[in-house]
Design a protein around this nucleic acid. Structure first.
Lengths: 184, 184
DNA sequence: ATATGTGAATAGGTTCACAGCC
DNA sequence: GGCTGTGAACCTATTCACATAT
């Protein structure tokens, strides 16, 4: 909307775009203060600024990716991250073979390089696309290195200290859930 | 657990593996009947059978994939689907160039072939990895062809009739959420 | 003794209904 | 008149506490 110079937008339109009900959207926004204008709606630029501030994506955020298998390398070239304010700045893997190299990040680094890289650049976010078996070990290294947010795409539950945030995305489970709901 | 011949398992162990509390797990299972044995736990084989029956993955389920870009081709070689009872049997794309061919499925088919393929084989599930702009159009074709469950990895909300189930997975939003929670 | 199954209590999230403001 | 902001009502989900079964 900012790109197409739309000035204001109603909670109804926003809700439609987000797939929720207008009251839900208004209630949610209200937790962050009075941000709209009655009788008019929300100023697009104001709202966008508020949201990026809240999310912490006002400035480009560096992210590392660990595990350069099929899924990992696909995500290295996934354009959406950049559009939303994230930049995958480095990729790491146990095995650094030529086949695991990738044109997006200049190089796939060995796991040993991870702690120094993360600490020096003060990186907080990591995408985890390693096999289930190595997930917990890698997570321990990430936490030790100073990572505080992990997007876990490996199909396993990992243990972390409570100040660390982990979000699990399990595509196989998503398909199973679908399979369940489409029955009868 | 079945593979390692474990006979029984407690709700506590299952809950730990799933990342939930034991009471939650027991309550959830109880909605499907009395399935455990008091004083003992759950018989692994019985429970596994009950769950695959409920999910509808007792027999291998065919799935199609639409949109063979970066993410799409990665998912074509994602082994976990098969392990959980799903088989990606065909891939479709607007553009069928040599660079979009893939060694997993024999061929990437043009979108025009989709309706006949889906109808003839009575396929119910689809994975959607197309660009945002073409999502709604593709979804309309899928629904018309008889697909009833869609795993939508494209970053847009799509409209479907209410008997169709759509699950959205938006990786950029997952990163944004992480970014929010790791602040302060 | 041990671990499930479950009604009751609690907590959390969504929607309603309408007051408040432009 | 139009659209947001929000307390109250409602609905859903989680946890507790313990009865029940092996």
């Amino acid at each position: 909307m900012e790109k197409s110079s739309v000035q204001t937008v109603s909670s109804e339109d926003l809700a439609k775009a987000a797939g929720v009900k207008p009251t839900q959207l208004r209630k949610d926004l209200s937790y962050f203060g009075q941000v709209g204008t009655r009788g008019l709606g929300y100023y697009v630029d104001q709202l966008a600024e508020m949201i990026t501030d809240l999310l912490g994506t006002a400035s480009l955020q560096p992210v590392i990716l660990v595990g350069v298998g099929n899924l990992g390398s696909a995500l290295l070239s996934y354009k959406r991250f950049e559009e939303e304010g994230f930049q995958v700045v480095a990729a790491f893997d146990e095995v650094v073979s030529p086949s695991r190299q990738n044109q997006i990040v200049q190089q796939v680094y060995p796991m040993n390089d991870l702690p120094a890289y993360v600490t020096e650049r003060d990186i907080k976010l990591a995408i985890l696309t390693v096999p289930s078996i190595s997930a917990q070990g890698v997570v321990n290294s990430l936490v030790a290195a100073g990572i505080t947010g992990i997007l876990n795409l490996s199909p396993s539950v990992v243990q972390v200290p409570e100040e660390i945030t982990v979000h699990d995305v399990n595509l196989a489970i998503e398909l199973e859930t679908l399979s369940y709901f489409i029955q009868s």
